[in-house]
Amino acid sequence: MAKHVAQYRRYTRSTAGSIGYFTILILAGLFMVFPLFYCIITSLKPLDELLIFPPKFFVRRPTLTNYTVLPALLGNLQIPVSRYVFNSIFIAIVSTFLTIIAGSMAAFTFSKSKVKGRKILFLIVQVMLLYNGVTLGVPQYLIFTGLDIIDTYWVYILPAIPSAVNCFLMKQFMDVSVPDTLMEAARIDGARVSTMYWRVVMPIMKPAWMTVLLFSFQSMWSVVPGGTIFSEQLKTLPFVMSSITAGGIARAGSSMAVTVILMIPPIAVFLFTQSNVMETMSSSGIKE
């Protein structure tokens, strides 16, 4: 705390600079928050205020109608909405769990072993940081077809497991936070690799896998089925949301209500993991 106060009074700071500094900060903050603010306000507007001309930004008689009509609005879907909710939660949890386990096991070998080939493999992982599922879309589609897993949960889950960024973050964190001497001590006690991994490394690695938990959960929570899912019962919640949004201005209130509801889980996960994320990201640099 005292450190920050001292930094503030550093004499590299000019008054004009500070004014410009806060102006930019406030403008950027407004730009970030305004759409979300608009979304929440719109979700609280009754129908007549949504259709009023000219439209008002603020709501005069806030109501929760847009939220309470959702069950009825979603009730006439072919598939009960609970199935979409289940799909989204199931996909987010399973793929997050698997990416943490697979990624941290590989990170352990990359960081703490001397086995042959680990350096070149990690180098390839670093190159693949550049390409995500979207860039690899069509080539992956060929693989899905070859494995015959089109139109199953696997097309969501399997490609999410080998996430380069997840493994990379855990490896970099391990380099910094798990001392080699600790490994040596465990080895002298006769610990096997699996024991070291589970008893020594994973507890120290908590900030790293909490961070991966956040990144993986937030990306899988918003996943929308592409051309690889046809069955209605395998589609996700954001997909339903997009069909409500397509309903035009009369549905604006409800679609904003759904948007607000969909925002809650990732925000909750962020608040829960926040302090760990900062600790992990400080070791995320790529050294060349």
């Binding site: 918003s222 925000i267 962020f270």
Partner: peptide
């Protein structure tokens, strides 16, 4: 949190 929220909430561009 304020700056990260739009990236965090994924599909919020519907707004």
């Amino acid at each position: 949190f304020i700056f990260y929220v739009p990236a965090l909430v994924g599909n919020a561009y519907y707004i």
